[in-house]
Design a protein around this nucleic acid. Sequence first.
DNA 1: ATGACTGGATAGTCCAGA
Length: 290
Amino acid sequence: MRIATWNVNSAKQRLPRLLLWLEQRRPDVVCLQETKLTEQAFADLFDEPLTALGYEYASHGQPQWNGVALLSRVGLDDVQRGFEGEPGFPDLEARAISATCGGVRVHSLYVPNGRTPDSDHYQYKLAWLEALRLVVEAGPDDVALCGDVNIAPADADVFDPAAYIGQTHVTAPERAALARLIDLGLHDVVRDRWPDSRVFSYWDYRAGMFHMDLGMRIDLVLASTPVAARVEATWVDRQARKGSGPSDHAPVIVDLDQAPDGDIGPMVPPPSRPARPGRTVRLPQAPVAD
DNA sequence: ATGACTGGATAGTCCAGA
């Protein structure tokens, strides 16, 4: 069973690439984030092509921002939109959907960005993670948390820790909140498979960051022990970040037991070119008005 | 070539993203 998670940065804009990718990679379960579509708008766009490809689906959305979805060819049972105790900002947002697929409780998650460490949004991010932790703690043993966690778990998960000082995604409280979740007994299966490799899942669109492989690993698959024990392969699908009209995130793919039939072949993330030593790269900053 | 922000709402540019 192949599970994949992908922040598509607008399912509408990504529709042609997403459908082509589904045909190429043939994932059995897909977690999408940042669909930016209401449930109705998602169905209007995707019902026909997804049905033709053999997928059941469920989405949870709102206009304009956020939005998550689950696609499955191995069953999609007990769909839950949001989760018990989920905080809002201040209203509830479409950031989580879960279902049981092939015996695994799969969560598609879009953790709040946090914006800046001194912001209310950052507190929202921490509270959201804690509420999720309580749900996972009380949930079934076979679980996979998949999605854009908007946290780089360790310094090795960013191209240059110095470039992120004072910014979200790398602060100690965020990493502690993520660690508390993982401490329930979850496994970061991509890092476990590639302990010493440069593996990123997000690259800023600006300044050629992807082409220099200056990114972050913020899209994770966190699997409980019984699920992690079944892992045969894991990788970041960098091909999906290339070419015209990509998302700024690449899919993360995890094979349990075996790859699906018709798969064009598992890929390995390295070799990615290491950044040139001694080079200081600054994060692109948003244009500032005078 | 992996090739130099994008998406959504709006109608001015602005907000959000990370």
